[in-house]
């Protein structure tokens, strides 16, 4: 759970991550389309959100506790503009942001989170499934 060591990687790593994002977004992901998140991945996503303690900073619909107020509420990504005000609103980008925000959005104040790639994809799927109204 010690995140210190992967924090603030060299610029090379950052560029590689951005490239990886770009490659990923080039090919369509059949399971996680924007409008129909698979119920199963979304359910796993909520569990991952609870286990990672995202609620200590965010209020997240579907999570009873905790409801932190340090960071924006995560109420639905199906029809909002940019992720964190800067990044294109796509599942792969969201998943990458969740794992290591400062890497994909330099200067982001959200620290890297100890979630696996798969967990990050599940969480993204859950967040897209929340109706934004």
């Amino acid at each position: 759970m010690d995140m210190g060591h992967i924090y603030r990687r060299a610029p090379l790593a950052r560029a590689m991550a951005l490239m990886a994002c770009a490659c990923l977004s080039a090919c369509k992901d059949p399971v996680q389309t924007r409008r129909e998140p698979a119920a199963e991945t979304a359910a796993r996503g909520l569990i991952a959100i609870r286990d990672a303690g995202c609620g200590s900073c965010h209020e997240i619909p579907g999570l009873d506790w905790p409801k932190g107020r340090l960071a924006p509420s995560l109420n639905g990504f199906d029809d909002v503009g940019l992720i964190a005000g800067q990044l294109p609103n796509r599942p792969e980008v969201l998943a990458a942001f969740i794992r290591n925000a400062p890497l994909v959005k330099p200067g982001s104040t959200m620290p890297p989170m100890p979630v696996t790639r798969q967990e990050a994809r599940d969480i993204a799927s859950y967040l897209y499934g929340i109706d934004h109204d």
Partner: peptide
């Protein structure tokens, strides 16, 4: 009550009153 990592540590210090 929370897993222990950089993120939850920041959340606790900044806003422990929302968490607990």
């Amino acid at each position: 009550i929370l897993p222990n990592h950089l993120g939850t540590m920041m959340g606790w210090i900044g806003d422990s009153q929302s968490i607990k």
